[in-house]
Amino acid sequence: MASSKRKYSGIERELIRALTHACETAKAEIVGFQWLTHEVDYQQFPQSLVVTWMFDSEAHKAQALASTDEARMRELTQAAFEEVGISVADIAAHVVFSVEQPARGKRGQGH
Results as ranks from 00 to 15, higher is better:
93 A>H: 08
58 E>C: 01
14 E>N: 14
38 H>L: 11
58 E>G: 03
22 A>D: 06
77 T>P: 00
13 R>Y: 04
101 Q>K: 12
58 E>V: 07
66 A>H: 08
11 I>S: 08
54 M>F: 15
109 Q>K: 10
69 D>W: 05
63 Q>W: 12
53 W>H: 10
80 A>C: 09
13 R>M: 12
107 R>I: 03
34 Q>N: 03
17 R>N: 14
85 G>W: 08
10 G>D: 13
111 H>G: 09
108 G>M: 06
99 V>Q: 03
107 R>N: 07
77 T>V: 06
101 Q>D: 10
74 R>P: 04
39 E>D: 11
4 S>C: 06
16 I>G: 09
73 M>P: 04
100 E>M: 10
84 V>H: 01
95 V>C: 03
56 D>C: 07
4 S>H: 09
60 H>L: 02
94 H>L: 04
22 A>S: 14
36 L>G: 00
11 I>G: 08
88 V>T: 05
99 V>G: 01
109 Q>M: 11
96 V>Q: 12
95 V>G: 01
58 E>W: 06
108 G>Q: 09
47 Q>G: 02
17 R>S: 13
93 A>W: 00
57 S>H: 09
24 E>P: 02
81 F>I: 01
42 Y>K: 04
46 P>K: 04
104 R>K: 07
60 H>W: 11
79 A>E: 12
80 A>R: 02
103 A>W: 06
37 T>E: 15
38 H>V: 01
76 L>H: 01
101 Q>L: 15
44 Q>R: 11
13 R>H: 08
55 F>I: 09
